[in-house]
Simulated assay, not measured.
Amino acid sequence: DAGLKKWMDNQEVCGVLRISKKTLQVYREKGLLPFTRIKNKFFYKPEDVQSMLESSYHPQKRKP
Results as ranks from 00 to 15, higher is better:
1 D>L: 11
2 A>C: 10
3 G>P: 09
4 L>I: 14
4 L>Y: 07
4 L>N: 08
5 K>C: 09
5 K>I: 08
5 K>L: 15
6 K>I: 10
7 W>G: 04
8 M>Y: 09
8 M>C: 04
8 M>K: 04
9 D>C: 09
9 D>K: 08
9 D>G: 07
10 N>A: 08
10 N>Q: 08
12 E>W: 02
12 E>L: 05
12 E>A: 11
12 E>I: 01
13 V>L: 00
13 V>K: 01
13 V>S: 03
13 V>D: 01
14 C>F: 02
15 G>V: 02
15 G>I: 04
16 V>S: 02
16 V>D: 00
17 L>Y: 05
18 R>L: 12
19 I>M: 03
21 K>M: 15
21 K>F: 08
22 K>T: 13
22 K>F: 10
23 T>D: 10
23 T>Y: 08
23 T>R: 15
24 L>E: 04
24 L>K: 05
24 L>H: 03
25 Q>Y: 15
25 Q>D: 11
25 Q>M: 12
25 Q>R: 11
26 V>P: 05
27 Y>W: 07
27 Y>T: 04
27 Y>H: 09
28 R>T: 06
29 E>C: 13
30 K>V: 14
30 K>Q: 12
31 G>L: 03
31 G>S: 06
31 G>R: 05
32 L>E: 10
32 L>P: 00
32 L>H: 12
33 L>E: 02
33 L>I: 04
33 L>G: 03
34 P>N: 06
34 P>M: 05
34 P>H: 07
34 P>G: 06
35 F>T: 03
36 T>M: 10
36 T>P: 01
37 R>T: 06
38 I>H: 12
38 I>G: 07
38 I>L: 11
39 K>S: 11
39 K>F: 14
40 N>Y: 07
40 N>W: 05
41 K>E: 07
42 F>A: 09
42 F>Y: 12
43 F>A: 04
43 F>N: 02
44 Y>K: 00
44 Y>Q: 01
45 K>D: 05
45 K>N: 08
45 K>C: 05
46 P>C: 01
46 P>F: 01
47 E>R: 07
47 E>F: 04
48 D>F: 02
48 D>L: 01
49 V>S: 01
50 Q>S: 09
50 Q>A: 08
50 Q>P: 00
51 S>R: 09
52 M>C: 03
52 M>D: 00
53 L>P: 00
54 E>S: 06
55 S>E: 04
56 S>Q: 08
56 S>L: 13
56 S>K: 14
57 Y>T: 03
57 Y>Q: 04
58 H>G: 08
58 H>F: 08
58 H>K: 10
58 H>I: 10
59 P>K: 00
59 P>E: 01
59 P>Y: 01
60 Q>W: 06
61 K>G: 13
61 K>N: 09
61 K>S: 13
61 K>D: 10
62 R>P: 09
62 R>M: 13
62 R>L: 14
62 R>W: 15
63 K>F: 11
63 K>H: 11
63 K>R: 15
64 P>E: 10
64 P>D: 11
